[in-house]
Design a protein around this nucleic acid. Sequence first.
DNA 1: CGGCTGAATTGATGCGCATCAAGGCGCAAC
DNA 2: GTTGCGCCTTGATGCGCATCAATTCAGCCG
Lengths: 228, 228
Amino acid sequence: MQADSALARELRHHYLFSALTEAQQLRLLATAVPRRLAAGERLFSRGDSAAQFFLLRSGCVKLYRLSPEGSEKIMRLIRPPQTFAESVLFMDVPCFPVSGEALDAAELIAFDRETFLGILRESFATCRAVMAHMTRRIQAHWDEIETLALENSRYRVVHYLLGLVPRDAQGQLTVTLPARKSVIAAHVAVTPETLSRTLRALSDEGLIEVAGEAVTVRDVERLRRHMH
Amino acid sequence: MQADSALARELRHHYLFSALTEAQQLRLLATAVPRRLAAGERLFSRGDSAAQFFLLRSGCVKLYRLSPEGSEKIMRLIRPPQTFAESVLFMDVPCFPVSGEALDAAELIAFDRETFLGILRESFATCRAVMAHMTRRIQAHWDEIETLALENSRYRVVHYLLGLVPRDAQGQLTVTLPARKSVIAAHVAVTPETLSRTLRALSDEGLIEVAGEAVTVRDVERLRRHMH
DNA sequence: CGGCTGAATTGATGCGCATCAAGGCGCAAC
DNA sequence: GTTGCGCCTTGATGCGCATCAATTCAGCCG
């Protein structure tokens, strides 16, 4: 892959790459492969052997698992400029623990696992960044396990909506759902019917208004209090 | 803390410490603090600021979260010789993301966060071990999220039982539950009543026999097939 | 031995959410 | 315009599991 200054600039601002030297970055890019996906195209399946991890530059990718009966749980929705599947870096027999599929047309970069591992060895700062990032992910998982185990579907939906509003927001504001409603449903682990009914109930109570993919929260504070 | 050759030997066999030099190990032990807990005693609460992580040498510790209504989800049951709360190592404002409490009387060692971070900086092998370990934990979390989202309580109980039998086991064998049944229940996210009924149903079907904390699986293969 | 205490079991009931099924609505094709 | 196709919505029904309540059981101490 040839030098791409726009890409190089993107990498500079990304936690995984920002601590790399110029030379390391070039080494990494030398083995990086750009990739395009059509909407609905699959990138990898759970269990596939893995020699790469990815940076999403545009579009939207879902990481998911299927139950034997065919129902889907979306583990993570990837939006630019996020990396994903970094976990294959450290597995003894590297293979993807989830499936990945484009929701919209997507552009991404595939980085070579071995090259990046070689660079990691030389950069404690990057090691540290990776570990810090994994820690945040573990915390997020704990939050999700907690809400799945202890909270009901209404709570999960409200919690999800609040996750879309900026941390310091207050009063009224409008957020747009990052994907189709059925995708949101598979993400918060309810059926599309239940999601629809829950949003209906919330808007009947005057807490939100729904217009297609645009959800306006009437009063962020009130919705936050409403969680319990 | 003074040199303790039994402890030193334990550390040698632990993934976090096995790659350390003699000198590093001594530095670490110099700031390590032994600690005893009575049954039921709390080690830390969710949100407490954290300057240490722990190695359990004997007894049993539960890591858990409580819902506002008071129900409990056990996130992890710690048994010797496991370390826990390593995640505080990499947090900007280090604080425990779960509560920790001894189930039985327990002995543990508290390691100083900063000391270990200093050692990490010098040991890529240990960095690598930490990252590999975090990866395994993340995978385990995904498995748990999947079963909470997609599987029913019976599946979760069977899955838990199968997790207690050795990977290559077959035929009949007896496992002993690692804790009281109500603790197991809080771990697989069901009520004690449901756990009791599920075990009853499984033994009525001839799949297992339950005698107090001893559960004998009549036929491991059959139970595995039974999952779906 | 009997009585106390906390855990485990069993039963009766109800609610939450999935499931199944039937419209409604937006949007692209022609 | 009309047709067709996804997606979302709304309704009717049923099952799974929590909840509440009552026994039974096991361990412990007097």
